[in-house]
Design a protein around this nucleic acid. Structure first.
Length: 291
DNA sequence: CTTGGGTCCTGTGCGC
DNA sequence: TGCGCACAGGACCCAA
């Protein structure tokens, strides 16, 4: 679900509640996500300050004081929601003005973080494909979760020559190559489809056979679609919400994703969006203008 | 090494 | 209204 733009949007929404703040209480409400939490996970977070909240690929990383980093992956359906308020001086307790007492008590609310902001941050993930762990801050890039990751697509180093180099010799369709996190980190199914549409490249074309002018166009398309999506707060299909609970709205700007049978968005094109399956994932494209 | 398929999990929407 | 099946934003693991 959450691809780079969604994770980046969540990061921006969480930052005010987390950066510079200390976890006053952390609670895991069941023992495992897809993978079990590390030993003493909640206890190790208690009293720790978040120095910096950053993102690598589709991972959210909260760098803590001491030398550990809280690593979060939202999987397909993971959400991070902030409930923040002020302090009710009369009652002498936190006021979560958006959060009734039961916030964080839902069936699929798996982790509840309380901070001194004060804020309550709740991780919800009904499919439990998400992941949370703690890593040594100095060894993030060496960890198996991060070691093979490719380039950040919004970085300056991501350019046509990089993409040509990594696509060379790839026998897989270009669409599948874009989903490979070792090639580009952070692109998922939606933005792979949308970028290929913008670059007018057929998803079925073999990666190594995309001509270099088209690769250059693809680089531009990937950057532009990711930036547009971030500006729109990401794409909300089913589960995704921004940290403040609002919906993203980039789904209203999809040219092809989830639009099977609808007319192609390109002016003058009489084609219709087609859905095919590649490597087990749905691909949407316009067979008329993507060649 | 690369590539494709199955799998983890729960929920939703569709056809019958 | 109910039942079964297909499908969903990801990515690991393993076999070919």
């Amino acid at each position: 679900m959450p691809e780079l733009p969604e994770v980046e949007t969540v990061r921006m929404g969480l930052a005010p509640a987390l950066e510079g703040h200390t976890f006053t209480h952390v609670e895991t409400r069941r023992g495992d996500l897809r993978v079990p939490f590390p030993r003493d996970f909640a206890k190790r977070l208690h009293g720790r300050r978040v120095e910096r909240l950053w993102r690598r690929a589709k991972y959210l990383l909260a760098e803590l004081d001491g030398r550990e980093t809280l690593v979060i992956h939202l999987g397909m359906t993971g959400r991070m929601a902030v409930y923040a308020g002020g302090v009710d001086r009369k009652l002498g307790q936190y006021v979560y003005d958006a959060a009734p007492a039961e916030a964080g008590r839902g069936k699929h609310d798996h982790v509840v973080f309380e901070t001194d902001a004060p804020a309550r941050v709740v991780f919800t993930d009904h499919r439990r494909f998400g992941l949370m762990t703690l890593l040594d801050s100095d060894a993030i890039e060496q960890d198996k979760l991060f070691k093979g990751l490719g380039i950040e697509p919004l970085s300056k180093d991501f350019d046509a020559s990089y993409l040509c180099r990594v696509l060379k010799g790839k026998k897989t369709p270009i669409k599948s190559a874009l989903l490979d996190q070792r090639v580009i980190a952070g692109v998922g199914n939606i933005y792979a489809c949308e970028a290929l549409f913008r670059a007018a490249i057929s998803p079925k074309r073999l990666a190594a056979k995309v001509p270099s002018p088209a690769v250059a166009a693809l680089v531009k398309a990937i950057k532009s679609v990711l930036k547009d999506a971030i500006r729109a707060g990401g794409s909300s299909l089913r589960d995704y919400r921004k940290a403040d609970g609002d919906l993203g709205h980039f789904q209203h700007h999809f040219a092809v994703y989830d639009r099977e049978g609808e007319p192609c968005a390109r002016k003058g094109c009489k084609g219709a969006v087609k859905r095919i399956t590649q490597a087990g994932r749905s691909t949407f494209y316009c067979p008329k203008c993507q060649t």
